[in-house]
Design a protein around this nucleic acid. Structure first.
Lengths: 301, 301
DNA sequence: TAACACCTATTCCAAATTGGAATGGACAGA
DNA sequence: TCTGTCCATTCCAATTTGGAATAGGTGTTA
């Protein structure tokens, strides 16, 4: 027996003065009400209502219990409403986790726009490149690149993060522009160590041929800005996400190379603790992000 | 699913930080806790706890709900305790119903003693000779004479109410003392109309022979004191309950007659609205009354 | 007085639900 | 790598659930 239902039936019975009416009120049958109230009394060990074929009357205990119950039921309803409101509302605290580079260049402006649309939100935007436990850290959404660890998390595909090979015009003038990936072996290749943990680069040609080449260079960093800065300083060639290269391409400090070959794009996902019941602030944010990760989103960076 | 149990499990899970521990706390298994919390979340339509293989963490909604729940569970426990206390306590209001004559002469002094023993009680002692609906009137205990209407009420036998035939010595001297019931036809018989609604009296002889005789007289009343007063005023003979006659027997204003014949005794019962769960103030009173309705209780009146 | 309307309690039963055991998958610490 | 612990899921027997039907009581009305 659901005791809350029992309480509701008891209260309705008191207020309508009849089990039958209470039953109709709640779309149940009279025997059900009889049984619930009887079970409630049995659990309490005391009689709440004296019944007659003619009607009901509260016992002294029943009267006291009724008063208390009304308050309790009110509170329960309050609690439910509280949940509904919060769940439906795009407001409250929203903790977002993202990688440093993407976060700084791409996510930050998007979030600023999102905040403009939802002034009720209190955003906590955390930048971490290492793996974090969403549940332990209390993070509502994380934006993750590359392969997802298959776990119990919920995830939504946001878009692709394409990469390109770049170098500065000055470097190319001095060392020549490579025409095929294999020529990279003659160049100084700057590595973003987080993604290219070995010294290997993968390409796909126009004819869909896969190429994997080894290369070496004088700089490895887990910070994309640093790698970009090195490229702009004519230190060598590098594989960079388009969004990192974009502004430097625009100002001419950096040029694409090997544009006939494609570097593997990373998948961008929004990840959240559970796929079960997603608060609307979370789903609203994810939809918003999805809108903005269209085909050439990285040009805006 | 009992929602109150679900709330309890949820709260315990939050407080112990683990479904398994919460389960042990409440002597249930972990799958049960999982299911209850999941069901609660489904009903609410929102996630309360984010789970990990490593542990739990409250969602924002969960945190708010948890706070509310603690209060609710407290209130529920209060309500339960309130019921237990009141049910076990011999205190509060106690409404008693009784017939006028018995109430005035017998019940009143008993109740006064009962009140002395239980000062917490607030007694409402109502005298009515007509049938009253216990439930409708909110009466906790009624003392009833004679045959019980078989209904859903609870009842407990308290004792017998014996009757006797009496007359004043002066009357007997003037009209003679009847030796057998049939001689009553020559006497003026005063009737208590409530019991002897016809003009008929029933006797049982020493040899267990039943006798039914008709008689007539100059007074019928539904008030026993009136009938007694008439007997004391030498107006005739009457059948009276022993307790009514007792004091007049002691002061010699009235004498028993036909003492070889027995009048039918009434049964005295305590009657209460329901036999299901009897508040202890009620059962305490009934036990008290039972003690005092021993074989010759009426001598004290 | 009989018929009726309406009440609660009880019984019976098919259908749904319950809680536990077993199992699976994930993770952390030794 | 092994072990212990965590939560989720599945499966199943046993219980419980709620409604239809019924019983039994009481006041109202014709």
């Amino acid at each position: 027996m659901d005791r809350i239902i029992a309480l509701q039936l008891f209260v309705r019975a008191v207020e309508t003065g009849s089990f039958s009416k209470a039953a109709r009120d709640v779309q149940l049958t009279q025997p059900t009400v009889t049984k619930h109230v009887a079970a409630l009394e049995k659990k309490l060990g005391a009689r709440l209502l004296n019944r007659n074929t003619r009607g009901l009357s509260l016992t002294e205990i029943g009267a006291a219990y009724y008063e208390k119950c009304k308050g309790i039921l009110e509170q329960i309803e309050e609690a439910d409403n509280l949940v509904n409101l919060r769940h439906a509302a795009v407001s409250g605290r929203l903790r977002i986790g993202t990688s440093v580079a993407l976060g700084r260049r791409v996510i930050t402006p998007l979030i600023l726009e999102f905040m403009r649309r939802h002034p009720q939100l209190q955003i906590d935007l955390g930048f971490v490149d290492t793996y974090v436990d969403l549940v332990a850290q209390g993070i509502d959404v994380a934006i993750r690149m590359g392969q997802l660890a298959d776990s119990s998390l919920g995830a939504r595909y946001l878009g692709a993060n394409p990469w390109m090979m770049v170098a500065s015009p000055k470097y190319l003038k001095k060392h020549g522009t490579p025409k095929t990936p294999s020529e990279l072996s003659k160049h100084n290749v700057l590595f973003y160590s987080t993604v290219h943990s070995d010294d290997r680069l993968h390409f796909v040609s126009r004819e869909s041929k896969r190429l994997s080449i080894m290369a070496k260079g004088t700089l490895r960093s887990n910070n994309l800005s640093t790698v970009l800065a090195a490229v702009r300083a004519d230190m060598g060639v590098a594989a960079l996400p388009n969004y990192v290269a974009a502004s430097s391409l625009r100002d001419g400090k950096v040029s694409p190379i090997l544009s006939n070959f494609t570097l593997p794009a990373q998948k961008i996902h929004a990840v959240y603790p559970s796929p079960k019941q997603v608060a609307s602030k979370v789903s609203t944010l994810i939809s918003f992000l999805q809108e903005h990760f269209q085909s050439d989103w990285w040009r805006d960076s």
